[in-house]
Simulated scan of single mutants.
Amino acid sequence: MTDTTKKLTTEQKEEPFLKLAFELGPLMVFFFANFRGEWLMNTFPALSVFGTPLLVATALFMIATVISLIGSRIVLGNIPLMPLVSGAVVMVFGALSIWLQDETFIKMKPTIVNGLFAAVLLGGLVFGRSLLGYVFHSAFRLDDEGWRKLTFRWGLFFVFLAVLNEVVWRNFSADFWVNFKVWGTMPITIAFTLFQMPLINRHTVNPAEEEAEES
């Protein structure tokens, strides 16, 4: 194996971990800032201007999100679509929460983001387009049926996450919602992703066969 090949292999292995770090970083900031909100406001009185511990956490979450997106652009050379959309919604709803001193907006952010993704994916299928393939084409090579099934499943999963977020924030405390957002949503998403592997394996297209069909 040449040095160039080794370098590419190392980069391919590191990239998913870097992406995960950039996505989890702001969530960790959000969790710990909310957990230590009172201490932060007592230690840094200027933060009291935001109002409640959750709104302090929201402000720091917004800053961490911007830093994460910039870091992703610098280190990875691009900003993935989902974190970009999520980051934009964080900015809008976080700003509304702080400006109006209403925690409802930031709590609704996951509902809006997941609902938007669901609408795009399921709406694309209505018009005969498996849009998930445009996002993950570099990671997987699936046949048309595979992309349709995977897009449909992810669309329904985003609907599930949107509904679940509404149930949690409307029926439980703010602290419980933050804990669920950080420690609940990610494991659920990882578990769902793993359950899709049999479908992906069944519909994976061999690159050699794909080239033969195109020629």
Rank of each mutant, 00 (worst) to 15 (best):
M1V: 12
M1K: 13
D3K: 13
T4W: 07
T5F: 12
K6Q: 15
T10K: 15
T10D: 15
T10H: 14
E11D: 15
E11C: 12
Q12K: 13
Q12P: 06
K13V: 05
E14I: 15
E15L: 14
P16M: 08
F17Y: 15
K19F: 12
K19S: 14
L20W: 08
A21M: 13
F22N: 12
V29W: 07
F30V: 00
F32S: 09
A33F: 12
A33Q: 08
R36G: 09
R36S: 08
R36E: 12
R36V: 06
W39L: 09
L40A: 04
L40V: 06
L40T: 02
N42S: 07
N42I: 02
F44I: 14
P45V: 09
S48F: 03
S48A: 13
S48R: 10
P53E: 05
L54F: 04
L55T: 03
A57Y: 04
T58G: 04
T58W: 05
A59R: 04
L60N: 02
L60P: 01
L60A: 06
F61A: 10
V66I: 13
V66G: 05
S68M: 11
L69E: 11
S72K: 13
I74C: 10
N78W: 13
I79K: 09
I79N: 10
P80C: 13
M82S: 07
P83C: 08
L84F: 14
V85I: 15
G87P: 11
A88D: 01
A88W: 00
V90E: 03
V90S: 04
V90C: 06
V90T: 12
M91Q: 13
G94K: 05
G94S: 06
G94D: 03
A95M: 12
S97Y: 05
W99A: 07
W99T: 10
L100Q: 13
Q101D: 11
D102F: 01
E103P: 01
E103Q: 04
E103H: 00
I106M: 10
P110F: 00
N114F: 01
G115W: 03
A118L: 02
A119Q: 11
V120R: 11
L121H: 09
L122A: 04
L122G: 07
G124Q: 05
V126Q: 10
V126F: 14
G128Q: 09
R129M: 11
S130C: 05
L132T: 05
G133Q: 03
Y134P: 06
A139D: 14
D144G: 06
D144N: 07
E145W: 06
G146E: 02
R148S: 05
L150K: 02
T151R: 11
T151L: 08
R153S: 07
W154Q: 06
F158T: 05
V159F: 01
F160N: 06
F160M: 06
V163G: 01
L164F: 04
N165G: 03
N165D: 00
V168C: 04
W169S: 00
F172N: 06
D175R: 02
N179H: 02
F180A: 02
F180P: 03
W183I: 00
G184P: 01
T185W: 02
A191E: 02
L194Y: 11
L194T: 03
F195D: 00
Q196I: 01
Q196Y: 02
M197H: 09
P198K: 01
I200V: 09
I200N: 03
N201S: 08
N201C: 04
R202H: 12
H203G: 11
T204H: 07
T204R: 14
P207I: 06
P207V: 03
A208C: 03
